[in-house]
Amino acid sequence: MAVKKSISALEDHAGYWLRYVSNHVSHAFSRKVEACGVTVAEWVLLREMLNAGAANPSQLAEAVGMTRGTVSKLMQRLCHKKLVARSTTDGDQRYQTVELTAAGKRLVPVLAKLADENDREFFSHLKADERTSLISLLRDIVRRQGWKDLPVD
């Protein structure tokens, strides 16, 4: 008679629950920012640009952990939406600086408020120390894994 090995259930894994929660939190936030005309990836870049001020796309790519190609595509879309402006130094097209337009600077706080609301929607039931512990545990996992890229999808 063959002995059946016990096979763990999906629900036995922390990763299952992280993905379950992440999918719902991320999807809700995505819907919110898309209602304002941007994607989550664009939001991440816009938020970083608020801190960085005028910067070159390579610096931004490094800061948010995206490829230069991805940042370039996002910049094209954000320029088309008039949220970002590009400029060149002495007409040299190889070196570009990008920065938020006035419209971009007005939009970032609106999107940040949506991020805050999304957090409240999903995590306000936690006590302050529980929320702090959760964030601390997740940051520790990120640090131990050496992850640098920002979650955008």
Rank of each mutant, 00 (worst) to 15 (best):
I141K: 14
R143N: 14
K4Q: 14
S136M: 08
L50V: 11
V33Q: 01
F29R: 07
S6T: 12
C36M: 08
A52Y: 08
L10V: 11
M49N: 05
D92R: 09
S72V: 02
V3Y: 09
K81V: 07
A55I: 09
D12K: 10
G53F: 11
G15C: 04
I7F: 01
L10A: 11
A103H: 04
S22A: 06
L126H: 10
E130K: 05
R139M: 11
D153M: 09
L83E: 06
A52L: 15
K148S: 13
L74I: 09
D149W: 05
R144P: 00
A61T: 00
M75E: 12
L114D: 02
R131I: 03
Q96W: 05
L134C: 07
D92A: 05
C79F: 07
D119G: 06
S22Y: 05
D116A: 13
A61R: 01
A103M: 03
W147H: 13
S26V: 02
A41Q: 03
V71L: 02
L83S: 04
Y95V: 15
E48V: 04
W17K: 13
C79M: 13
N56V: 01
S6G: 08
K32D: 04
K4I: 12
V33D: 00
W147A: 12
D129Y: 02
T97S: 14
E99W: 07
T89N: 13
S30Q: 12
V25L: 05
K5Q: 09
T67L: 11
E62K: 15
K113C: 09
K73I: 06
